[in-house]
Every structure is written in structure tokens, then in C-alpha cells.
Amino acid sequence: MDKLNDEDRKTFAVLADYLIPEYGNKPKATAVGVHQELLDKVLAVRPDLSTDFIRGVRFAAGNDVSDALNTLNKDDRIAFDAITLVATGGYLMSETVREAMGYPGQEPAPYDPHETPEYMTNGMLERVTLRGPIYRPTPRDDD
């Protein structure tokens, strides 16, 4: 399979904006560069997607976007999945998008391990305890 070229990027840009258009405070896919820097980042992490991705993009080139994507979804699901994963994977790595989603990333969340949890004070766990044991004990030899 050939390497990704500029035509592929242009075709993917159209596909990506169709899959992920502007919506509310969320930018469209190409506004954050899913067809440029983010595309390179995604394929650097997942080079295994390249062949299927390029095959799908080249199938779509010059065709109606909806027709091309629906045909891929029906006839070449692997290529369709590669295109959508590259689009969403890149889009969701964008700091701009994460900020719009209110998602800080998988950051540490400090806590006090000795703080009494709410379920200890609002009776929720006590109700479990009051219902009593639910296990079946080890049968004795004479059972």
C-alpha cells in the first residue's frame, strides 16, 4: 500500500467533517487538524490502521461523501472502522475539543483517604449490614 499523500488528506478532511461537523461549542474535525497533525499522531500510535484507512479514503475519493461512507460501512467495515477511529481518536486528543467537552484527561484526582465517606453517614451501607449475611457457609461434615 502507498504512503499517505496530500490527496488522501484532502479526501479525509471531507470525510472527517461529515462524520464530526461543528456542533454547539464543539468545532468541526478539520478545525482542530484531524487531517493534519492529529492524523500523523494517530497513525504514529496506530500504524496498524494505515492500510485499511488509506484503502477506505481512496475508495471515497471523488464520490459523494454519504454514499461512500455508507458503502464502506456495508462492504468494507474494516476500512470504515479505521476511518472513524482515526477521526474520533484524533479529534478527542485535541486540547480544544477536550476543553469544550469539559474533559481534563485522565488526570490524578487527589483525595483524603481518611475522610468518612457519605455512604457511611447517610445509612446506605448500614442498611446492607442490617440485612445480615448473604453467603452460604462451608457445610460441616455432618450437614
Binding site: 461529515y18 462524520l19 464530526i20 456542533y23 454547539g24 470504515f80 474533559y103
Partner: peptide, 20 residues
């Protein structure tokens, strides 16, 4: 079904509804 059922604005709405 059709990809438009899951993508485009519907994808954004799905993310708003589920993520987080």
C-alpha cells in the same frame, strides 16, 4: 443502519449524552 444515524450531529449528541 445508515451511518448518519450514528455520525454527524448525532455523534456529538451521543457524546454529550454519555461521556462523563
Amino acid at each position: 443502519g445508515k451511518i448518519e444515524d450514528a455520525w454527524g450531529v448525532n455523534w456529538h449528541q451521543m457524546m454529550d449524552r454519555r461521556f462523563g
